[in-house]
């Protein structure tokens, strides 16, 4: 048996590969559910019902998807240029805490129409700054940005913990470490009444579409793809490599920071150190499932968010730990890698 490179990638295979990957991940996770002594099909049916079975369930899934679309986009734009930004989790938190600091203080008397865009920009800017440090270390000292951006995640959460234990601590929170709440003007309007779903979803979807247009229609998009396909080739073709990477890093870090900002302004109104159940890391999975396509990120996010939201109810009913959602989603990343490989190679006897 040997592997043979295909002369071209069949478009059909590329399009169905995420579905095959997800089916394979569900099948493997099904073995775990069966080993834990629960009926597999019922478990998946309950996850589906928990995620989409009612108006409340569906809006919860979309609410959960909102920050994840943005962290997924953050990973997708960076990975497209082979910039390994694994720091979306930390960028999410600095975006969130920046919004809490500005939105609870001096600016909170501004009208919403002015305040909300300012806070979006501030959150995105904070995420950008946090991503520029690993990029600078890469360009200046050739340090692999994977490890540095990962390590900064821990620093960012500690930084948030420091602030919400100190200057930004809410004195009315019965001693719990949580930040001051943002003012009412800073809260995002609801998209659907009597739900938690807010206009952040529209922002996230618009971001995906805009990024798709930028990547497919602009010089910057072409350059960032070239930088990812072959750095040496890109430089030879006259692409300003460093500058392109800086722009990609700003875009990626900015999206992750915006994600944190939107989560604070849309859902909770304040920051705790468990604001994100791993949105930054799940974003990587979402980006890979979408094959780094910005619009595909939206579809991949709906699957991921549905697993997380649906698993809670399934867990209560069947006694299977809800971590099964994390396992399935992580597995889908590995199966997706294999599925993508098989679009490029075929197995010959």
């Amino acid at each position: 048996m040997r592997l043979e490179r295909r002369s071209h990638r069949p478009l059909f295979l590329v399009l169905v590969s995420p579905l095959i990957a997800i089916a394979a991940a569900l099948a493997i996770a099904g073995i775990l559910i069966a080993m834990a002594g629960a009926p597999v099909l019922e478990a998946y049916w309950r996850i589906g019902v928990g995620a989409f079975g009612s108006r409340l369930a569906a809006t919860e899934t979309l609410t959960r998807a909102t920050p994840l679309i943005l962290t997924g986009l953050a990973a997708a734009v960076a990975f497209r240029a082979r910039l390994w930004n694994i720091g979306a989790e930390g960028q999410f938190y600095v975006g969130a805490i920046t919004v809490a600091a500005l939105g609870s203080g001096a600016l909170s008397s501004l009208p919403g129409a002015v305040l909300i865009p300012i806070l979006f920009a501030a959150g995105a800017l904070a995420g950008m700054v946090l991503m520029l440090l690993p990029l600078w270390l890469r360009l200046r000292f050739s340090v692999d940005e994977v490890v540095t951006s990962l390590l900064l995640n821990f620093v960012a959460v500690l930084f948030v913990s420091l602030l919400i234990d100190g200057v930004l601590k809410d004195p009315l929170a019965f001693g719990w470490p949580q930040s001051l709440p943002v003012g009412d003007h800073a809260l995002l309007p609801k998209l659907i009444a009597r739900s938690r779903l807010h206009i952040g979803l529209a922002v996230a979807v618009a971001a995906a579409v805009i990024i798709h247009l930028v990547q497919s229609r602009t010089v910057f998009g072409m350059r960032s793809r070239a930088a990812g396909l072959s750095p040496a080739g890109a430089v030879f073709a006259g692409v300003p490599f460093g500058r392109t990477l800086v722009m990609v890093a700003c875009l990626s870090g900015g999206l992750a920071g915006l994600s944190g900002a939107i989560e604070v302004m849309g859902v909770k109104g304040y920051v705790t150190t468990d604001l994100s159940p791993g949105y930054g890391y799940s974003g990587i999975i979402v980006a890979m499932l979408a094959n780094l396509h910005p619009v595909g990120v939206i579809a991949a996010t709906v699957f991921t968010a549905a697993m997380f939201v649906g698993a809670d109810g399934m867990s209560r009913a069947l006694g299977i730990p809800s971590y099964i959602a994390d396992v399935t989603v992580a597995l889908s990343l590995l199966t997706m890698l294999i599925a993508l490989f098989l679009t490029q190679y075929r197995i010959r006897r």
Binding site: D326, A330, L337
Partner: peptide, 20 residues
């Protein structure tokens, strides 16, 4: 396959499987 992405995938899989 990409050693970066595979490694991260294994980290996410192994840690969530541990918790499960």
């Amino acid at each position: 396959l990409s050693q970066h992405v595979t490694g991260l995938g294994i980290t996410l899989f192994a840690s969530s499987l541990s918790y499960f």
